[in-house]
Design a protein around this nucleic acid. Structure first.
Lengths: 222, 222
DNA sequence: ACCTGAACACCGTTCAAGT
DNA sequence: ACCTGAACACCGTTCAAGT
């Protein structure tokens, strides 16, 4: 729980309404996808439409708030795995858990690429995820389980690929996610006969630079 | 050019309008993403709004028509690579070309997961892509360049992951796509020390089954 | 047979009135 | 300070009138 500057104290009923809106939205998004109307979300939460927009300036901000919560949970889980016996297994368990959650409500991960460009809190939470992932990765590399020429952002991009590409099949083929996690494993495992990768490992600084790039700000996203 | 039953002959001006709409939509989608308004598309094409909906029952169908064209081009390119000297290199060149095109207008690939569930023509075009990819893959496997326990749909899912995960960075880091294509290569290359994959290779029949699954039809997509 | 644009429906967002 | 719901703006879609 870090103290972000923008966190004012809310009146008791306001705090409760905010929580209800988040729960209602999360439930509805999981059930029927991201395009459920705000009217229905407000109704399920038992508040007026205006209250929703008082707590979240736009529907996208509401989605972003849920994503931020999920990322926070992921960070906590990652921290818990930092002192595991086998660093290689710890890394892959972390990845499997994230993929498993996204499988339940895949719509949320879809929104990330768009939302983090606009939303500061998502960027911060995302940096947290990259942080723990980097630590887990570093330990796995030090143990000789994972190739050295790869970074946390590389792994996160591969994981996002697993989540999104496999999401359409998750309901019919329950083993598609484990299968593609195995392929991810094959891609990044240490191997004496491996070929060098082109380019260099992307970093968080690259994201910052992407945000100031006019091509993306203008509306390249979505 | 197969003869699909639904292809009636259009009057000359109608055919021209359809072409103009596709070109206008493709240009605008590439420039500013998938949420440009139909009004602007119709205006750029020089026709009324109604004409757009006469040619394409919905905006989603317009997007689908463009995706179908792209997939057709990909199939043509894949056929041209079938008699290459090195089957392994032919496969990876095919994958690199598809990834390179999607990099230009990433929004289109994003729409596929949603659209193919609804649109029959996309399913047909998709099957064509899987078909050539399967042939290229089979040759690469026969040549000993790629592991045997993998299917065309596996490779396509990995490729989609490369396209989507890397799309946010393509503008700032020009080598992110080649880099992740190298990782894909590492994942699927034949390797005596490789671990077995969980599950089995997904097939087109699995997609058909997914479509009849109520969970997805109801609104799991999007 | 096809084209057009006014009209409709829907949904995210705002805001004046209320407590 | 916060809540509410009627009103607004926007955009995909339809359809009666026109050629």
């Amino acid at each position: 729980m870090s103290m972000t500057p923008g966190e004012r104290v809310l009146r008791a009923d306001a705090e409760r309404n905010r929580r209800r809106l988040l729960d209602a939205a999360e439930a509805l998004f999981s059930e029927r996808g991201l395009d459920v109307g705000v009217a229905e979300i407000a109704e399920r939460a038992g508040v007026g439409r205006g209250t929703l927009f008082r707590n979240f300036p736009s529907k996208e901000d509401l989605i972003a708030a849920i994503v931020v919560e999920r990322m926070g949970e992921a960070v906590d889980r990652g921290r818990g795995l930092l002192d595991a016996r086998d660093p290689g297994e710890a890394l892959f368990e972390f990845l499997a858990e994230i993929a498993g959650r996204q499988q339940l409500d895949r719509a949320l991960f879809e929104a990330v690429a768009d939302a983090w460009l606009a939303n500061d809190e998502i960027r911060a939470a995302h940096a947290g995820v990259v942080g723990v992932l980097g630590e887990l990765l570093g330990r796995a590399q030090a143990a000789g389980a994972v190739r050295e020429d790869i970074g946390a952002m590389d792994v996160l991009m591969l994981l996002k690929g697993v989540c999104e590409a496999a999401s359409a099949f998750a309901h019919i083929d329950s083993e598609i996610v484990p299968r593609h996690l195995d392929l991810l494993r094959a891609a990044i495992r240490a191997d004496p006969a491996q070929q060098a990768l082109r380019g260099r490992a992307p970093t968080l600084a690259d994201i910052e630079r992407t945000l100031t790039q006019p091509a993306n700000v203008a509306g390249g996203a979505r």
